[in-house]
Design a protein around this nucleic acid. Structure first.
Ligand code: FES
Ligand code: FES
Lengths: 140, 140
DNA sequence: TATATACCCGACTAAAATAGTCAAGTATTG
DNA sequence: CAATACTTGACTATTTTAGTCGGGTATATA
């Protein structure tokens, strides 16, 4: 079980924004330098964040991105959702009638994985962007 | 975030064993048929389970594997450990002094991912093989 | 003791996912 | 008009996953 870089960078970048400016647009170049994340990769990530109304953009000189909501109103689950990033512990398709074994009964471990999925999602649901600024006063 | 098949199959197979026999060796062929898991893949998985003392084997006709411990004494975390399967949410190497950014300070999200990792590991730590038999009386 | 069963082990591979890069833009400011 | 900075889609190298393959060895039973 591994968390991908896209999700990690997204949270990292948004945390960076929360910490620095809430009014003046922040350029991806600055975030890229501060957090050591590839600029081109950040661009890709921010397009998704924008499409999902987590940030808004200003073009041109002194342009950049600004958070739309307050950090204490942004749940991590929203960020993951914006990136199409899902927790997937089940072997079967949740929607499908068929189990991971191809049969029409769900397998012996189905409930377990479902429980695990909820367990993880709960974490993302209860964590807000503001939470990780508080704990990290001392970090950039 | 995705759970791999190896871990899923391992738990599935051990659950199958818990449910069927506790004394007579169960052949991988039987598990393979019941749970629709590739026999060759199961062999690979069981070699690891054996090396980590979760099961013991008997060769030859009527041979197979037997659980070493009682299902209510086998934690899921042990199974995952046996397969070298780790939850990895951090961008950095936990041991290394360097952060995921290559710098000597841990990044702004480090604590968060660490917390998430613990959150997930707690789940595996608290679940036992016997737990998923109870909930699944009706399933094969 | 031959034969079938079933575990043992390392190496290999096709396919998918990841972690980006690249090219070619458009909009805004100074 | 030059520089900055967002926009977009396509492309690619690398890694990981999810297995397979080939050739064993040990044991029970006929
Ligand atoms: S995980 Fe859903 S049927 Fe196996
Ligand atoms: S995750 Fe550990 S430093 Fe970023």
């Amino acid at each position: 079980m591994k968390l991908n870089t896209k999700s990690r960078y997204a949270v990292m970048a948004l945390a960076d924004m929360s910490k620095f400016s809430r009014k003046k647009p922040i350029s991806l170049r600055d975030i890229s330098l501060r957090q050591s994340i590839s600029l081109l990769y950040l661009e890709q990530i921010f397009l998704k964040l924008k499409k999902n109304n987590l940030v808004k953009s200003t073009r041109g000189t002194n342009g950049g991105y600004v958070l739309i909501k307050d950090p204490n109103e942004i749940k991590l689950s929203e960020i993951f959702l914006a990136l199409d990033e899902k927790v997937k512990t089940l072997g079967c398709n949740k929607e499908s009638k068929k189990g991971c074994n191809g049969k029409f009964t769900k397998c012996i471990t189905h409930n377990l994985w479902d429980e695990l999925e909820s367990h993880i999602n709960t974490f993302f649901e209860n964590k807000k962007l503001s939470d990780l600024i508080k704990i990290n006063q001392n970090r950039i």
